[in-house]
Design a protein around this nucleic acid. Structure first.
Lengths: 150, 150
DNA sequence: ATCTTTGCAAACTTTTTGCACCAAT
DNA sequence: ATTGGTGCAAAAAGTTTGCAAAGAT
C-alpha cells in the first residue's frame, strides 16, 4: 500500500525534527494522506474522529500548525474563511469556482511562467500551491452570469 | 478634483441600480476612492468615522455587500482572515509577502497569459483582481529563510 | 523523570443577523 | 407614506490560547 509507506515516511520526518509521534499526529497525517488535499480542519477532525473520537479540533489545529512549522503541511485559503490543508508533497494549485465552489487541481507547472515573470519584474518569489485561484469553472462560466472580467 | 468626479460617477451607478444614496454609502465609497485598494472593513470604518463617528462597522459591511452585489466593489482575501475591499475600477493584482505582510500591486496584464492558459486547458475563467498572490517579496526572499518552492 | 502534547473551556477575530428606529425616495 | 437602510447588541464561524492532566521519550 502506497499510502501506508507515505505515512511512515512522513512520520519519520516528524521524529527527525525532534517532534514526538502521538496518536493525534499519526491520525491527522493519515487523514491528510488519504483524504486528498482540500481538507479543512473540520473535515480532518471528522475523519480522525471516526477512529479516535476524543481527538479534539484544537488538537487538529495544533498538529497542523506544528506540521507547517517543519514544512510537512501547508495550507491555502480558498477565499471564504476556512483554510484547507495538504501535505507539502502535493504540489498543485487550486482553481476554485466562485459560483459553485468546485475545486479543480492543476499542476504547479501551469504557474511557472508567472513565477518567472514576477521574479524578474519585482524580485517576488511566488509561493505556488499556497494560494487559491478564483474564477469560474467551465460550467458556471458558460451559464447565465458571464464573468465580469476584462 | 479627479476623485470627486469618481465618487459622483459611482454614486450615479448606485442610484441607477435602484439603491438609495445614504450618508453611510457616500462615506464608504469616498473612503474607497481616497483610501487605496487594500482597505479592510475596519480601515474603512476608521476612515469613515473621522467625519461620521456613528457609522457602525456593521453598516460598513452591509454597504460593501450591497456594492459588491452591483459590481461596484470587490474584495480579496489576503490570506490571514480579513478581506480587503476595492472599487472594481481598480484592476490590479496584489502580491502579498507572507513574511513581512507587504503588499505590491501589479497590473492585471501580468496575469493575461495565465488566464489564457487556464481558459484553454480547463475552460476556467480567471477572475483576476479577486485573489491575492502569496509569496515572498524581494527583501524577504533574499533574507535568511529561502522560499520553500520548487 | 522530563518535557511535549492533549483535552477542555474559554477567549479572540472577523463577519453576519434580528429587530426596532430612522431616513431617502 | 413607504420601504430600504442603519445602529446596536448579540450570534456565528473559524481559529487560538491557558491550564492542568496525560503521554512520549
Amino acid at each position: 500500500m502506497e499510502s501506508e509507506a507515505r505515512l511512515e515516511e512522513t512520520l519519520g520526518l516528524v521524529r527527525g525534527r525532534g517532534f514526538r509521534i502521538t496518536t493525534a499526529r499519526r491520525a491527522v497525517l493519515q487523514a491528510l494522506v488519504l483524504g486528498g488535499s482540500h481538507m479543512t480542519a473540520e473535515d480532518l477532525a471528522a475523519m480522525v474522529q471516526k477512529s479516535h473520537p476524543d481527538i479534539h479540533l484544537s488538537t487538529i489545529y495544533r498538529t497542523l500548525e506544528s506540521m507547517e512549522e517543519i514544512d510537512i503541511v501547508d495550507h491555502v485559503h480558498l477565499g471564504h474563511g476556512r483554510a484547507v490543508y495538504h501535505l507539502t508533497t502535493d504540489t498543485h494549485q487550486h482553481l476554485v469556482c466562485e459560483v459553485c465552489g468546485s475545486v479543480l487541481e492543476t499542476p504547479s507547472r501551469t504557474f511557472e511562467q508567472l513565477a518567472i515573470d514576477l521574479r524578474s519584474a519585482y524580485g517576488f518569489e511566488l509561493r505556488t500551491h499556497h494560494f487559491a485561484v478564483l474564477g469560474r469553472c467551465k460550467i458556471c462560466s458558460t451559464g447565465a452570469t458571464p464573468p465580469a472580467n476584462p
